[in-house]
Design a protein around this nucleic acid. Structure first.
Lengths: 325, 325
DNA sequence: GTGGCCTGAGAAAAGCTTTTACCAACTCTT
DNA sequence: AAGAGTTGGTAAAAGCTTTTCTCAGGCCAC
């Protein structure tokens, strides 16, 4: 205990927290000695009193996923400056496990909870709506009157298709995932708007092989072939690029291809590297973290859905312009 | 407070913890009422007294990585049964950030720390050797007298090469990552032992494009071509498979290919899906979690390096035998 | 009938920090 | 020089559990 080395016990607290009245040189001395003996206050005791644990819980059902990781990095990044740590709880769509983790977080007096997932239009398998701690949703469906952060898929898709139009492509096809995904419908909607229905939308699954198949299907059809592909994710785009290469079609010379997600490991390793749409998930996580912190501190936050803009990452699969950055 | 609804205050504690002496019906009544009002003890107060926070810290420098995620899932999986939660701290090779996180964990009285990384032969950029809490290393280089868990890369490589031999391959080449990786040398060593130096080892980088290049290099050489490839990771294997296909060489008919890591997203999406070596990282995490818990509870644990066996995942890139599981 | 023992339950302390209240001593002011 | 105000610091309470100690009452035995 710092008081042993210093002077008293409550004086030490006031010295270290720059609070209360005391002699300047006493304060300095206590601080110095505390530093020397490496004294660090016990956060448990502090939390017990202040009702703040400087801890938040992150609940995700996307264990192996590419979505949660960037979101998490953003949250952690935003909160470390405020001395807040993050409990990560992976709940594989298991309601019981989820409840266990939520209870454990509540027992540990988390200041707030962030729920995140792998899909915008699905709820986590646990009800967080009537907790006595603030809850923020990030990249997952929230409840009524909650704060929810999500990517603006419509704007992202528009970015992609407008880029293709801008570099001179006219017959743009859209190969994407299952139609029951909200994101898929939003992106397809934007595609229709911008591209003007010139080509049909091909709905499928989120895999490379579907990208392959879709190309076969498109090139089997009579008439003019597409000169650009807007793909629902990078894996589909990669499958498509590979299929085109096998047919001797040059990317980006003959066909421009654009993906979605900016999943580096796929997008950057494709030949040629994929131009794609980044959902800025780290920024999304950062904002979610800051928001849950604000709520925990009692600052008012307007409920509602916040759509964060996507960003186009230009690599080499579109041509038209040399890659930047 | 449960005591308000029940009878006293310390009696409640004893009732809920099945400790102390008291009437059976009193105990039942307290428990029932506690259940009804949804009483849950404050873990902070409990931790303050018991010196156990039921919290451990997980430190990783592999933010986006495929290694930390399974390890983490294993840890979480093993500890949730014991009521222990996990603080995840991502420290991007930044010593200052690492120190901040370690200090925060210590302040929060974690019962132990698990350090994990993306490479067996590198240390985290922070010294954890003289903490007053137990530290366990998982998939990263530990300190003297510490407990370290790692995959047995030699055994894994042997598994792979022996499989190739068993299905009748004789000219097995090894395309792998940078030679300064410990894992690379271990795997190469096992390859040499089992394959008997029939083919040279090609050292490069951990990317698909290196897999491509390596194939070009191998097929440019005069003389007999390899009939099997043992690749240092799944990405290299994928690059190699793609390069072979482009040359009209059939996998697995003409050449068997085997990868390393069992990174589903690469291995399962390759055409044909890759046979590969799984390092059982989730099991590794599970054991690390259980071990740090044992240390936290004062149970003795023998220091040293524990090598966990790898497992061969048979898919379709080798032929020889139909895929299982 | 009384002393000893057992049972059931409550009182109190401890764990560590922060905050409020308080006190002793000192310095002005008049 | 005495009262008022200021200053520097301490004592104590609160926050919530758990654990140990104590106590009151009932029962049995002698």
């Amino acid at each position: 205990m710092a008081s042993a080395a210093g002077v008293s016990i409550s004086t030490a607290s006031k010295a270290l927290n720059d609070t209360g009245r005391m002699g300047a040189e006493t304060r300095e001395r206590v601080k110095r000695i505390a530093g020397e003996i490496g004294y660090r206050p016990n956060a448990l005791a502090r939390g017990l009193l202040s009702k703040r644990s400087f801890t938040i819980g992150l609940l995700t059902n996307d264990t192996y996923g590419r979505f949660t990781l960037p979101v998490m990095a953003g949250i952690s990044d935003a909160l470390v400056d405020h001395g807040v740590s993050v409990f990560l709880c992976a709940i594989e769509d298991d309601p019981d496990l989820a409840q266990i983790h939520v209870d454990a977080m509540l027992d540990k007096q988390v200041d707030g909870i962030i729920a995140t997932g792998k899909r915008l239009d699905r709820r986590l398998p646990v009800d967080l709506s009537n907790l006595h701690v603030p809850v923020v949703y990030a990249f997952t469906e929230g409840t009524q009157n909650s704060v929810t952060f999500r990517s603006d898929d419509e704007q992202g898709a528009r970015l992609a298709v407008e880029w293709l139009v801008k570099i001179g492509r006219r017959r743009i096809a859209h190969i994407t995932g299952p139609e029951d995904f909200f994101s898929v419908r939003e992106r397809a909607g934007a595609y229709h708007q911008v591209a003007g229905h010139r080509e049909p939308v091909l709905y499928g699954v989120w895999s490379e092989s579907w990208g392959h198949e879709a190309i076969e299907e498109l090139w089997k059809r009579p008439g003019e072939k597409p000169d650009a592909l807007f793909c629902g994710n990078d894996q589909i785009a990669r499958g498509a690029v590979d299929a085109l290469r096998e047919r001797g079609i040059k990317v980006p010379l003959d066909v421009s291809v654009i993906g979605f997600d900016n999943w580096e490991i796929v997008a950057a390793q494709t030949r040629p590297p994929l131009t794609t749409v980044d959902m800025e998930l780290k920024e999304l996580g950062r904002q979610a973290g800051l928001t849950v912190l604000a709520l925990a501190e009692g600052r008012p936050v307007e409920p509602g859905v916040r759509k964060l803009p996507c960003r186009l990452i230009v690599r080499q699969s579109c041509g038209g312009k040399p890659p930047r950055e």
